[in-house]
Write a protein that binds this DNA or RNA. Sequence first.
DNA 1: GTTGGCACTAACTTTCATGTGAGTACCTTA
DNA 2: TAAGGTACTCACATGAAAGTTAGTGCCAAC
Lengths: 130, 130
Amino acid sequence: MKVSANSRAPQAAPLPVDLADGVFPAGCPSRTVLDHVTSKWGVLILLALSEGEQRWSDLRRRAEGISEKMLAQTLKTLERDGLVRRDAQPVIPPRVDYSLTERGYELSALLVPLVAWAFENAEDIVNGQR
Amino acid sequence: MKVSANSRAPQAAPLPVDLADGVFPAGCPSRTVLDHVTSKWGVLILLALSEGEQRWSDLRRRAEGISEKMLAQTLKTLERDGLVRRDAQPVIPPRVDYSLTERGYELSALLVPLVAWAFENAEDIVNGQR
DNA sequence: GTTGGCACTAACTTTCATGTGAGTACCTTA
DNA sequence: TAAGGTACTCACATGAAAGTTAGTGCCAAC
């Protein structure tokens, strides 16, 4: 699946034109979105939810180390961005389910391979700081 | 190209087992790598370099808004992580070329679609904060 | 002869993301 | 009756990330 070591050196590929022109300018919205999505906890939450609907307390346990404040904040941002759906049932004790929207699934589909790569290469990278 | 609205709701997919168990724990190396890679400027630099070797001052102009300090810092981190190669020629005036390593290219291949998605959806997302 | 480009480093400051701890309202179980 | 779970919010503290300013050595062009 890799281009193979001897066939050719890693290739530089031109980016799509609109991307090349669009992402780099300072004030562009994609930078904001990228910031939300690639925030410390954003990735983890999106990833966790890619496995399906989950409750507040599930997420809290899942994303090890997150504080309640950051969980609330991250979820709120992702909800405002239309990536996460919040479903609060008026029962007692409270029950709130979080899930990805269609757009959220689109994103997580791109995020999963990235995180998988990071996971696979993490040890090499962290150790190999020559 | 979309799964279509009526066929089925967006599907939850189980993550690869090792990923599901590996990424969420607090102290795991993948979190560090993810932090480097998804840092504000890391993404931009990796993206810029995916188009091929570039000089310091090229990058500085390309990643609009970056300070010299942040450029140096980001490049250093990515170099230590083995994603970026630094080639300093002993000429005057100094000339330093930066390029991606093979591992860097692997990463950028995953990053490009993500950024492209962010770019395409950015306006919708930023405006549609209902 | 001074301005400017090149590729940086270092010191200092500000801003912002994240963390901490407490409090809320209600109910269940011990 | 006290402890604990559920899903939060709010005020405050801290620390890391990012920005700012200045300075380096050398050369070329003006």
